[in-house]
């Protein structure tokens, strides 16, 4: 427990250090990419809990992200304290104003997404593999249809003029929290149970694991962090619309996982980093060849080629850790290895 807190503090300190560097020494455009990387990392790690660890192939992550983004943005822009006696708003400023209003708003987005995860998780319990993929895809589409039709959140135009609260500290602080929490979760009894459900649901049930509960918890956990990522995304981009959270966004996160290795959290981080930086590099190429769609086509090709030639991704189910690094690097302690 103490160790967990220590690592968490270390992660937050690291995020703060990165924040100082990015806000002082990095020009705005690269800084935006760095921040987007952080959001992608949260998305990839959280989806990895559902898809990688528990083996429930979900294609609806953008739907959870959308819910988190809308709820938290609604909190910081529109929600005001309403006095029912006087029938008017007490103050003009939003209830969750300023920097102290942001964490609760973010949390609210996460909780709303987690509730959605619960609602999706229960009926889809009986679905497996492809059917689950289609059903979660349907969920994502329904979320975007509903959001396009809600006048209160701007319809297809979405929410605009969201305050830019999400800086590098918040983004990487959340990413570090997500990674560390997931890392401990993975190694706990609970995480082992998730993996058992993935490997063989029936055998897991026989061993006394409540598979249904594991699956739902995985959905809720993943959805929560997707919601947080959505909230950060909204407060980074300052505008959100249903088009931001389409099917392609979900697929993008899946590609990150597959590239890094389904089931590996650190693999998810690496996949997220590659697939957030690479498209920015390719943006210039796309402009030069003047072909829109080139970027996504390359993504898709990467996905297919990965599946054909290295279906386990870069890391497989291994985690990048100090131990692995030590094993890979030629060590000086072993005399036999010296050249």
């Amino acid at each position: 427990m103490l160790r967990a807190l220590g690592i968490l503090c270390l992660g937050l300190a690291g995020a703060f250090g990165l924040h100082l560097v990015v806000s002082n020494a990095v020009p705005p455009y690269p800084a935006l990419i760095v921040n987007m990387c952080g959001i992608s990392i949260i998305l990839a790690i959280s989806l990895n809990v559902i898809n990688g660890l528990t083996g429930q192939f979900s294609l609806g992550h953008a739907g959870f992200m959308a819910i988190g983004a809308y709820v938290s943005a609604y909190f910081t822009t529109t929600l005001r304290y309403f006095d029912p006696d006087a029938a008017r708003y007490i103050s003009e400023a939003p209830l969750f104003d300023g920097l102290w209003g942001f964490p609760p708003a973010l949390l609210a987005g996460g909780i709303a997404a987690a509730l959605a995860g619960l609602i999706v998780g229960i009926p889809t319990l009986r679905l497996k593999g492809d059917y689950l993929a289609i059903a979660t895809l349907g969920f994502g589409e329904i979320v975007s249809i509903l959001l396009s039709n809600f006048r209160a959140v701007g319809g297809t135009k979405g929410l605009t003029s969201i305050p830019g609260y999400a800086d590098t500290f918040w983004i990487y602080g959340s990413a570090a929290t997500c990674l560390i929490l997931t890392g401990f979760l993975q190694r706990s009894t609970f995480g082992r149970a998730l993996i058992a459900v993935r490997e063989n649901e029936l055998a897991a049930e026989v061993m006394g694991i409540n598979a249904a509960r594991m699956k739902i918890t995985a959905f809720v956990y993943g959805a929560f962090f997707a919601g947080v990522a959505g909230g950060l995304f909204g407060h980074l981009m300052l505008t959100i619309s249903p088009a931001n959270f389409g099917y392609m966004k979900s697929v993008e996160v899946v590609v990150m996982l597959v590239l890094g290795g389904l089931g590996s959290s650190t693999g998810a981080v690496v996949g997220a980093l590659i697939l957030t930086v690479l498209p920015e590099a390719l943006r210039d190429v796309e402009r030069q060849v003047e072909l829109s769609g080139f970027r996504m086509a390359l993504y898709a090709l990467l996905l297919v080629v990965m599946m054909l030639f290295r279906p386990q991704g870069i890391f497989g189910q291994r985690e990048l850790s100090l131990k692995l690094l030590r094993r890979l690097l030629p060590s000086r302690d072993k005399p036999g290895r010296q050249p």
């Binding site: 192939f57 294609l59 593999g129 492809d130 993929a133 392609m248 697929v251 899946v254 597959v258 769609g293 080139f294 970027r295 996504m296 086509a297 993504y299 898709a300 090709l301 996905l303 297919v304 599946m307 054909l308």
Partner: peptide, 15 residues
């Protein structure tokens, strides 16, 4: 399944 999704996106964007 992942390959099928990949092929689908590939066709969409090549299209």
């Amino acid at each position: 399944l992942i390959t099928a999704i990949g092929v689908s996106i590939l066709l969409q964007n090549v299209g």
